[in-house]
Amino acid sequence: MGMNRRALLGRIAAVGAAGVAGSALVLPGTAQAATWKKRLTGADLDTNHRWQVAGTDLGIPYVLENGSIGYLFGDTFNTPWPEGPPLPNDWRSPVMLRSAVHPGAAGGVVFDSAAKVWGNGRAPEIMHNGHNGIGIDGLWEVTVIPNDGISFPETGRQLVSYMSIENWHSVGPAGPHWKSRYAGIAYSDNGNDFVRTNLKWWNSPDNKDPFQMWTMQRDGDWVYVFSVRSGRQDGPMMLRRVRWDRLFYPESYEGWGWNGSNWGWGRPCSPILNGRFGEPSVRRLADGTWVMAYLNAATGNIVTRTATGPDQVWTPEKIQVTSWQEPGLYGGFIHPWSSSSANGLHLMVSKWTRLPDGRSTAYHVSQYVGTV
């Protein structure tokens, strides 16, 4: 069975709030850099016919150990949207599809396989999920949502950072926003089965911990981790780094912090940015440009920033996609094969639109093309 109606309506409120706010703040004709290229998922597409991936979101792209691209999807169903009909509708998360096609090709992203599937067939979730029940660690878990993925050719291992969701509609000092219980790491040595480790970056009771939604990018021996609070709420963005072979050792993570006179590594984290952040996505492009994308939940826009390095100054926001282009939008995950050239930026953008009574009218992922 999919999410129950109470949980569904809570998530609708949490996910939809940014889109509603954005519609009020962004005027038609607002300049944007990215344009729609194609819809990637849906009940009418091969994602459903081949792997029963119909209604889904996120589609976080990362480089696999074999050089192709894995796409991490969140709550996934064999119906067009989470509430069906019919029910049950085969709720799964996370699910991974794969592609070796460059997103800049004329036909855009084309998926060729699914994790844990030989050829065609139902794509299962790639790690344990409590599904509105007791999770693998004995705690209540609504669902598991991927944050980002990273792979290491030296070992053939892949890692996925994720959130264990406590509820979709946390009320209180920080609500209403969704609340993660903790951020965690899962690993796979075969590219299919991911094992959730006992590493947990616990959220605070007031839902203000800034290390819940991660994005990861390797540069040489270091993996740089950018993170924000869960729930698309106001707060800081933090930056840490850890050697690639020490990701399982929390004491090895170094913070990027300000000591009152200068910035440096090995300090308590200081905010590198402040805002109302959706899920962040950071990638280092082939020419060395660092690009950051996220939903600005205060304006409803998918925006990007650039920098010459992870610990350098980030440019002001550049609007890529507005809620007028894609109502109910969120995500904005950067394809790692993007470039700094004109129309070289490829974004995976989610859409979830509903009627006033909460019934969904769209729940899918599209590819957008823009310029950093």
Rank of each mutant, 00 (worst) to 15 (best):
residue 278 G to L: 07
residue 6 R to E: 09
residue 112 D to R: 11
residue 285 L to F: 13
residue 291 V to I: 14
residue 129 N to G: 00
residue 152 F to V: 07
residue 118 W to G: 12
residue 223 V to K: 05
residue 112 D to A: 07
residue 5 R to L: 15
residue 266 G to R: 13
residue 353 T to S: 02
residue 59 G to M: 03
residue 266 G to Q: 13
residue 280 P to W: 02
residue 252 S to I: 07
residue 56 T to R: 03
residue 102 H to S: 08
residue 370 G to I: 06
residue 106 A to T: 09
residue 193 D to Q: 12
residue 270 S to D: 12
residue 330 Y to Q: 05
residue 32 Q to R: 07
residue 341 S to H: 06
residue 100 A to R: 11
residue 122 R to F: 02
residue 209 D to H: 05
residue 357 D to R: 02
residue 18 A to D: 14
residue 158 Q to H: 14
residue 344 G to R: 08
residue 245 D to R: 14
residue 195 V to I: 15
residue 69 I to M: 15
residue 322 T to G: 06
residue 117 V to F: 00
residue 328 G to A: 03
residue 198 N to M: 07
residue 343 N to L: 03
residue 219 D to H: 01
residue 227 S to H: 07
residue 167 N to K: 01
residue 112 D to I: 11
residue 289 T to H: 07
residue 178 W to F: 14
residue 260 G to R: 12
residue 66 N to V: 04
residue 87 L to H: 09
residue 98 R to V: 04
residue 197 T to E: 01
residue 338 S to M: 06
residue 310 P to S: 01
residue 342 A to Q: 03
residue 43 A to L: 07
residue 11 R to G: 04
residue 183 A to V: 08
residue 43 A to K: 14
residue 157 R to P: 01
residue 187 Y to Q: 11
residue 341 S to R: 02
residue 319 I to K: 04
residue 299 T to H: 04
residue 312 Q to V: 00
residue 151 S to K: 10
residue 332 G to M: 05
residue 284 R to S: 07
residue 299 T to P: 10
